[in-house]
């Protein structure tokens, strides 16, 4: 299990690198080499590190540990084929990490990032539309049951395209450079990550790499079904490439526009689920 954890971290960092490369190429720039994010993480971990004097010291360090902990746990939920609800619980708790990162330092930029993270809570709501839809169709939230269902009936993405779309939107909200990434927008420096430097930043990079890996992996398991591991990786890569295209071509939305778009999407999916539940 520890082997897949380490693999997930490096694969996630590599995916981040590929993401940056694709965005750069779409925008006509050469872009960094694909392993840049791995080097980045190592570089940060070698840097001088302390805790800012204005920070809430315990919280400042604890959020980094919590970020690493929840995404390690989320990966294990996937590997042990546990409850989908637990996986999405982890995803919600990531929101608290984002919020805590920004609040803990005392920096105004971090604070803006943290407040934007509360505003962008609308990005979690499509997730519950997804859960509801999956439960309605498969009758279970255990990933093992969902995989078994797909063995019989084919991929869920075909049975329930709007649910897949909702989860795609959720993943899109969380990748770097996304149109919804208002919490780390450049007009507020790096948003909630501004004050986490050195080793803290390296820890966060590891956690976020794991997050990307877990979310893409979860999408494949939930909506495509059980595949050989190499095929899972291939589908994840294709999924990431599509996300990179969206990120490269869409400008970042303003905070309230992100809420509007995400709420509208959720509303449409909720209508679909209710209609599906009534008819089906």
């Amino acid at each position: 299990m520890i082997d897949i954890l380490l693999f997930g971290i490096f694969a996630g960092l590599l995916l981040h690198g590929i993401h940056r490369k694709v965005i750069a190429r779409v925008q006509g720039r050469p872009g960094p080499p694909v392993w840049q994010e791995i080097l980045h993480t190592l570089k940060f971990s070698f840097k001088e590190t302390w805790i800012p004097v204005t920070a809430s010291q315990a919280l400042f360090v604890a959020v980094v540990l919590v970020a690493l902990g929840i995404w390690t746990a989320a990966l294990f939920v996937l590997l042990l084929e546990g409850s989908l609800l637990l996986l999405f619980g982890m995803y919600m708790l990531h929101k608290i990490v984002e919020h805590g990162l920004g609040l803990s330092s005392g920096s105004p930029y971090g604070k803006f990032g943290a407040i934007r993270s509360v505003i962008s809570a609308a990005s979690e709501i499509p997730l519950f539309a997804t859960i509801g839809a999956v439960y309605l169709v498969t009758g279970s939230l255990m990933i093992s049951d969902i995989l078994a269902w797909q063995q019989v009936h084919g991929p869920l993405a075909i049975a329930m395209p709007p649910a897949a779309l909702a989860m795609y939107l959720v993943i899109l909200s969380k990748v770097h450079y996304s149109p919804f990434a208002i919490i780390e927008a450049k007009e507020i420096v790096s948003g909630n990550r501004t004050e986490h430097f050195g080793v803290w930043r390296a820890g966060l990079d590891v956690a976020f790499a794991l997050k990307t890996f877990v979310l893409l992996f979860a999408f494949v398991l939930i909506f495509v079904g059980a595949l050989p591991f190499a095929a899972v990786l291939a589908v994840m890569l294709v999924l990431l490439l599509s996300l990179s295209f969206v990120c490269a071509l869409c400008p970042m939305l303003s905070p309230y526009d992100t809420v509007t778009v995400q709420s509208l999407a959720t509303g449409l999916i909720a209508v679909y689920i209710v209609a599906f539940g009534v008819i089906g």
């Binding site: 070698f46 302390w50 690493l68 902990g69 390690t72 294990f76 050195g198 080793v199 820890g203």
Partner: peptide, 23 residues
């Protein structure tokens, strides 16, 4: 899984703090 979830975050952070540049 529980043991790794509890220990791994500390491992990553301590590893960085062990090999980072001194102040």
């Amino acid at each position: 899984a529980l043991l790794i979830v509890a220990a791994f975050p500390f491992f990553v952070v301590f590893l960085g703090l062990w090999w980072n540049a001194s102040e």
